[in-house]
């Protein structure tokens, strides 16, 4: 039997649900492994983790933004033979990573504890005395982090959350591990090997030209036609395949949760250069700088659009110092 840990950090627990969602196959894990740590499944605390002497495979998920999360991640790394970054937060920083654009921690505190609806404007401090006892709270960082920016990771399973086929592939790795078989090379991303368009069967016109951007709610999209050709930003071209086009099947554009395709570090800037290349490609001279700027300004949240899941791992990834 091998020892498995499933460790939520700053997580919405969607990744836990995704693991549980594989249904009866979940029982297969039990044949080869003992789940020694899974706070979402059983009530386990930091002391319990500290008490475990080693772990074979850890699936860590969720964002890192507090000193506690960092501490747990480092502890997991120390005890685990294989660390798997599970889900987009673990791989790239995820949606919580958009915090890197936000104002300083003090502003967050002010909003939370000093707004009109809050009775007592008292900020929690990292150490406070309550009823004669010392209460310690973790430190809140300014920035979100991907797991591999803090510790070495062995495998990556992107997705918000990852899909069933990836979890099965990961299970395959666990089985191989348990039998002492050959493992994928370190750094392997358990997902597709190309960009998402490879899996998408929407039709494309001879030339894609974007004359105007539409947000998904502004237009009823033709379910058979490439989103980009309809002026709806679809992250598919700059996103790793492997999800089975689940959003696109629901007639919603790809939001990019699988992160950049192989060989690409910065998903957002790649998509941005693709989009701007397509923008009014046949009318650039006619529109001029001003006209193009007006078209571009219709993208209401460029960072949130192009770096929705990957801001902390982008080349330009923050607005201020970490304060860690």
């Amino acid at each position: 039997m091998i020892r498995i840990a499933i460790a939520p950090l700053g997580s919405c627990s969607g990744c836990d649900v995704a693991i549980a969602d594989i249904g009866e196959d979940f029982a297969d894990i039990a044949k080869i492994a003992e789940i020694v740590y899974w706070p979402t499944g059983a009530d386990l605390k930091l002391e319990d983790l500290e008490a475990i002497d080693y772990i074979d495979i850890t699936l860590s998920h969720g964002s890192i933004r507090t000193s506690e999360q960092e501490e747990i991640l480092k502890l997991l790394r120390k005890k685990s033979k294989v660390m798997v970054a599970f889900g987009s937060c673990a791989c790239f920083g995820g949606i919580p990573g958009l915090v890197n654009l936000s104002p300083e921690r003090e502003d967050v505190m002010r909003t939370a504890y000093e707004s009109i609806s809050t009775d007592k404007g008292e900020w929690p401090s990292e150490k406070s005395k309550i009823d004669g006892k010392i209460l310690t709270l973790p430190k809140l960082y300014n920035l979100g982090h991907s797991h591999d920016s803090l510790v070495e990771m062995d495998y990556y399973v992107p997705g918000c959350p990852p899909v069933e086929s990836q979890i099965r592939d990961l299970l395959g790795v666990a089985v191989a591990y348990s039998k002492g078989g050959e493992l994928p090379p370190k750094g392997t991303v358990i997902a597709g090997a190309r960009a998402l368009c490879d899996e998408c069967d929407r039709e494309k016109p001879e030339k894609i030209v974007i004359d105007r951007f539409y947000r998904p709610h502004e237009k009823e999209a033709d379910p058979n036609l490439c989103f980009l050709a309809q002026g709806i930003i679809c992250m598919g071209p700059a996103t790793r395949s492997g999800c089975g086009t689940r959003c696109i099947n629901a007639n919603m554009p790809c939001r990019g949760c699988f992160g950049p395709p192989p060989g690409i570090r910065d998903q957002g800037s790649k998509m941005l250069s693709a989009i701007t290349s397509l923008l009014a490609a046949d009318r650039e001279a006619e529109l001029g700088e001003e006209g193009l700027r007006e078209l571009l300004e219709r993208i209401s949240d460029p960072t949130g659009t192009f770096y929705r899941f990957t801001l902390p791992s982008a080349i330009i990834n923050r607005r201020l110092n970490d304060g860690r």
Partner: peptide, 13 residues
Amino acid sequence: EDLCSGCEVCISV
């Protein structure tokens, strides 16, 4: 060819 997903952005530009 191993990396190309056929998004056709290049064809358009």
